[in-house]
Design a protein around this nucleic acid. Structure first.
Lengths: 196, 196
DNA sequence: GTCTATAATGGGATAGAC
DNA sequence: GTCTATCCCATTATAGAC
């Protein structure tokens, strides 16, 4: 397979993304320098600018990429023909599983909103809102069909998102529970929260 | 009332804390400079160092102060003679109320852990764990007395903390719901989550 | 207790050689 | 596509005048 004409080094590009995600998740966007990233990648700082116009765009691309992946992965998972309770179970399990698999990307997407320029922030906020709206729609469907009952659909949505996303703050792979059990426990908690 | 001998300017000290909390919550510890803080306070940068030995200590004091206040405010609120369900209601309502009243301090306490030196991090982590242990103890009491039932006390604790703390990410004072209603809705969701 | 001035270091980004 | 060298500016923290 010939390399695409005019393409830049795909391996280096990928490594920059991995290293940037790791360092930014650990120390924060503002605390990580382009020099640190270059050193961890194994290149000099000037080389980074063949892959990103600036540091801000590097962050923005990481966040957009992650949120677009969440979105498309959920759209591929959503059992749209099923009832609201079954879809809610799919959502809760998907959210926990996906977030446990990508804790660093999740961390950045939630923590570095304030590091974005206003223009980039608007894009990312829209992506986040679109995803959260998917959950809210399921809850409202369930209410209409009287198979889900919550005091307030909007608050229940935000409470669920907060509860599910929080798993990344405490879960450890070498801990007492494996991912499957955690996924199951979170769904049982969620189900009781919204049950008729 | 005479000013304590040898004391530094109490008003300036307090203003530094307020300004630092506001700026760090908005932009992040690493992104805020001592110059920015000094300008917002209305002094020159050198003056700040009469009140804090360095920037790190300024952050650490903000976080410790907040967590100690959470702890002592809860200890003063906890209806220790009541049953587990009543105490859980007190906890949930307290947590939502306290966090809605201090969104910036909460934000910093959860987001800037990575900006602390290892020594300072250990202190803050201990304070956080102590507070979370209070909730877990209530849930375990409730399980023992068979008035609370959850799949796993530890996961339920973290799920509750995540759910309740998340309120600060979406609540707006000029929004649809006032604080009292939000507090009530969160408690209803929590109660269903842990009910027998 | 606050100021001005400065030391010492590191930041993002670019130019031009190879 | 990566390197070296550099520009220019911001950073934390301190010294010493007032």
């Amino acid at each position: 397979m010939a390399r695409t004409q005019g393409s830049i080094g795909a391996e280096t590009h990928e490594k920059i993304r991995e290293v940037a995600e790791e360092l930014i998740a650990a120390h924060g966007y503002a605390a990580v320098s382009m020099r640190q990233i270059a050193t961890a990648v194994g290149v000099q700082v000037g080389a980074l600018y063949r892959y990103t116009p600036d540091k801000q765009t590097l962050l923005f691309d990481l966040m957009r990429n992650h949120l677009e992946q969440v979105q498309s992965a959920w759209d591929a998972t959503d059992p749209t023909d099923a009832g609201p309770v079954e879809r809610l179970e799919a959502f809760c399990r998907f959210h926990v599983r996906f977030h446990l698999d990508r804790p660093r990307a999740v961390f950045i997407a939630y923590m570095e909103l304030r590091s974005l320029t206003p223009e980039n922030y608007a894009v990312i906020e829209t992506l986040r809102n679109t995803y959260e709206a998917r959950l809210e729609a399921i809850i409202r469907d369930g209410q209409d069909l009287r198979v889900i009952r919550v005091p307030d659909a909007r608050v229940a949505t935000m409470a669920l998102i907060g509860m599910l996303t929080g798993v990344t703050t405490w879960y450890r792979d070498d801990g007492r529970l494996d991912r499957g059990r955690v996924e199951r426990i979170y769904w049982r908690l969620a189900r009781r929260m919204v049950k008729v």
